[in-house]
C-alpha cells in the first residue's frame, strides 16, 4: 500500500490493543493505541487519524460520547465501534450517531477485523481519488 493510513485503537483491554496493533502493522498501517477515551480525543485533536477503533464501554467516558466528539471534530474520520454480543443495542445506537462500522467482540477472526478496516480504507480511498481527480 503506497498511501499510509493512520489508525488509532481505543480499548481498555491491553491484549486487544496489542493484538490489533501487531496485525495492522503487518499490513503497513501506522498504528497508535490508548486505553483512555479522554486521551484518545486529545490525540484526535492533535493529529490526523484516518480510522479510529473505539470500544463502546469505558469507565471515564462512554464510547458513544467519544464517537460523537470525534465525528464533531473530524467528520471524515472512519470510526469503527467494537462491542460485545450483549450490547447489540449500543452498536445500533452508535451507528445512529455516525459510526461507520462495527466489530463484535470476541472477534470472529482476525481476518474479519482486517476485512472491516479494509472496507473503510476503500471508502477513504474512493473519496481521496475523487478529490485528486477534481484537483488535477
Amino acid at each position: 500500500m503506497k498511501y499510509k493510513y493512520k489508525v488509532l485503537i481505543v480499548d481498555e483491554d491491553e491484549n486487544i490493543l496489542y493484538d490489533i496493533k501487531k496485525l495492522l502493522e503487518q499490513e503497513t498501517y501506522v498504528v497508535e493505541t490508548t486505553q483512555s477515551a479522554m486521551e484518545a480525543f486529545e490525540k484526535v485533536k492533535k493529529d490526523k487519524y484516518h480510522i479510529v477503533l473505539v470500544d463502546t464501554d469505558f469507565h471515564e467516558m462512554n464510547g458513544i460520547e467519544l464517537l460523537k466528539e470525534i465525528k464533531r471534530y473530524d467528520a471524515l474520520t472512519q470510526v469503527i465501534m467494537m462491542s460485545g454480543h450483549s450490547t447489540m443495542e449500543k452498536i445500533l445506537n452508535s451507528l445512529e450517531y455516525g459510526a461507520n462500522d462495527y466489530i463484535l467482540k470476541p472477534f470472529r477472526s482476525m481476518d474479519h477485523v482486517i476485512g472491516v478496516i479494509d472496507y473503510s480504507v476503500q471508502k477513504l480511498e474512493r473519496w481521496r481519488k475523487s478529490i485528486i481527480e477534481i484537483v488535477k
Binding site: 503506497k2 498511501y3 471534530y73 473530524d74 467528520a75 471524515l76 473519496w127 481521496r128 485528486i132 484537483v135
Partner: peptide, 13 residues
C-alpha cells in the same frame, strides 16, 4: 480539520 482532510487526501499529488 476540514482543511487538513483536503491536504491529507491530495498527499499523493
Amino acid at each position: 480539520r476540514k482543511i487538513i482532510n483536503i491536504f491529507d487526501s491530495i498527499k499523493p499529488l
